[in-house]
Amino acid sequence: KRYRAVYDYSAADEDEVSFQDGDTIVNVQQIDDGWMYGTVERTGDTGMLPANYVEAI
């Protein structure tokens, strides 16, 4: 699945990823209600991200 960031996010922990509004997130997997795991296409960084900061595309 592919998602697009709708807000900027700065990683708060080493297992999270930072991204900017408009970034595409690929290979996304749902972890639980609030978190997903995926790769930021622009940077190649992979990690956890907050589900409410992205939307499906």
Results as ranks from 00 to 15, higher is better:
residue 20 Q to P: 00
residue 57 I to G: 05
residue 3 Y to I: 01
residue 24 T to Y: 15
residue 49 L to N: 00
residue 26 V to I: 14
residue 44 G to C: 08
residue 44 G to T: 04
residue 27 N to V: 15
residue 5 A to T: 04
residue 37 Y to I: 12
residue 9 Y to C: 04
residue 54 V to E: 00
residue 30 Q to N: 11
residue 25 I to H: 01
residue 38 G to Y: 01
residue 3 Y to T: 00
residue 4 R to S: 05
residue 13 D to E: 12
residue 45 D to A: 13
residue 19 F to D: 00
residue 48 M to H: 08
residue 3 Y to H: 03
residue 10 S to M: 13
residue 13 D to I: 09
residue 40 V to P: 01
residue 13 D to L: 10
residue 28 V to H: 05
residue 4 R to N: 04
residue 34 G to Y: 15
residue 47 G to A: 02
residue 28 V to I: 08
residue 3 Y to M: 07
residue 42 R to H: 06
residue 29 Q to H: 14
residue 21 D to E: 15
residue 44 G to Y: 04
residue 39 T to P: 01
residue 5 A to V: 05
residue 55 E to M: 12
residue 19 F to H: 00
residue 22 G to H: 04
residue 3 Y to F: 10
residue 49 L to K: 00
residue 41 E to C: 13
residue 32 D to K: 14
residue 44 G to A: 05
residue 31 I to M: 12
residue 36 M to V: 10
residue 57 I to R: 05
residue 21 D to K: 15
residue 2 R to K: 12
residue 38 G to E: 03
residue 50 P to Y: 05
residue 14 E to F: 11
residue 24 T to R: 07
residue 32 D to N: 15
residue 46 T to W: 08
residue 20 Q to S: 10
residue 2 R to G: 06
residue 45 D to Y: 08
residue 47 G to D: 00
residue 25 I to Y: 00
residue 34 G to V: 14
residue 19 F to W: 00
residue 9 Y to S: 01
residue 21 D to R: 15
residue 57 I to D: 08
residue 53 Y to R: 09
residue 13 D to M: 13
residue 46 T to L: 04
residue 41 E to P: 02
residue 3 Y to L: 04
residue 31 I to V: 11
residue 12 A to W: 08
residue 41 E to L: 13
residue 5 A to L: 00
residue 36 M to G: 02
residue 19 F to M: 06
residue 9 Y to E: 00
residue 14 E to D: 12
residue 3 Y to P: 00
residue 16 E to Y: 09
residue 29 Q to V: 15
residue 42 R to W: 04
residue 4 R to M: 08
residue 25 I to V: 07
residue 34 G to H: 15
residue 52 N to F: 10
residue 10 S to V: 14
residue 1 K to I: 13
residue 43 T to K: 03
residue 51 A to F: 08
residue 38 G to P: 02
residue 10 S to Q: 13
residue 28 V to L: 07
residue 28 V to W: 06
residue 44 G to R: 06
residue 40 V to R: 00
residue 45 D to R: 12
residue 35 W to N: 04
residue 20 Q to F: 13
residue 36 M to H: 05
residue 31 I to Q: 07
residue 22 G to L: 03
residue 40 V to H: 04
residue 36 M to F: 13
residue 30 Q to M: 13
residue 46 T to F: 07
residue 18 S to T: 08
residue 19 F to E: 01
residue 56 A to G: 08
residue 14 E to R: 10
residue 42 R to A: 06
residue 35 W to I: 05
residue 2 R to I: 12
residue 22 G to M: 04
residue 50 P to G: 03
residue 51 A to C: 10
residue 30 Q to A: 11
residue 45 D to N: 10
residue 55 E to F: 09
residue 36 M to D: 01
residue 9 Y to V: 01
residue 21 D to F: 15
residue 42 R to V: 04
residue 28 V to E: 02
residue 44 G to M: 06
residue 48 M to R: 15
residue 16 E to I: 05
residue 16 E to S: 07
residue 13 D to G: 15
residue 29 Q to K: 13
residue 53 Y to C: 11
residue 36 M to S: 04
residue 13 D to P: 03
residue 5 A to P: 00
residue 38 G to C: 04
residue 18 S to H: 04
residue 14 E to H: 11
residue 30 Q to W: 15
residue 9 Y to M: 02
residue 22 G to E: 03
residue 13 D to S: 15
residue 57 I to P: 04
residue 5 A to D: 00
residue 29 Q to F: 14
residue 14 E to S: 12
residue 29 Q to P: 00
residue 13 D to W: 11
residue 2 R to Q: 09
residue 27 N to W: 09
residue 43 T to L: 02
residue 33 D to K: 10
